[in-house]
Amino acid sequence: MTHLEQLPPSVALIIAAFVALGSILTLIGALGLIRLGNFYDRLHAPTLATSWGAGGILLGSVMMFSTLGSRLVVPELFLGLMMLVTTPVTLMVLGRAALHRDRAEGRAPYDTLPLSKK
């Protein structure tokens, strides 16, 4: 008897739904990273993976190990919280870096110019 069979059927189905949602969203995010045309559009793709992509998988993991060990297992929630707080920092710095580099080369998108220079 594997550990998966020890789960109550309804819990197993809920975990399956969460994990499926999370991994499909992560895949769509990575697909967007490849398909989208310019850098600023691509900056949005990883947020799919880090918001509900990670959230779904981590919630599934919390439910699975909490049910198996019959006690609340919370480290995953910490990991999810960490992702929620750290991803914006990286993406923000990346966005600023990209704009900075584009400006330095004189090919920044027109609508990014400060009002005074328009």
């Binding site: 600023y40 900056l43 949005h44 947020t47 799919l48 880090t50 918001s51 929620l84 991803t87 914006p88 993406l91 923000m92 966005g95 600023r96 704009l99 990014t112």
Partner: peptide, 10 residues
Amino acid sequence: TSTPGTAWID
């Protein structure tokens, strides 16, 4: 930024 679809740039 953590909302997909909007990104804080500057």
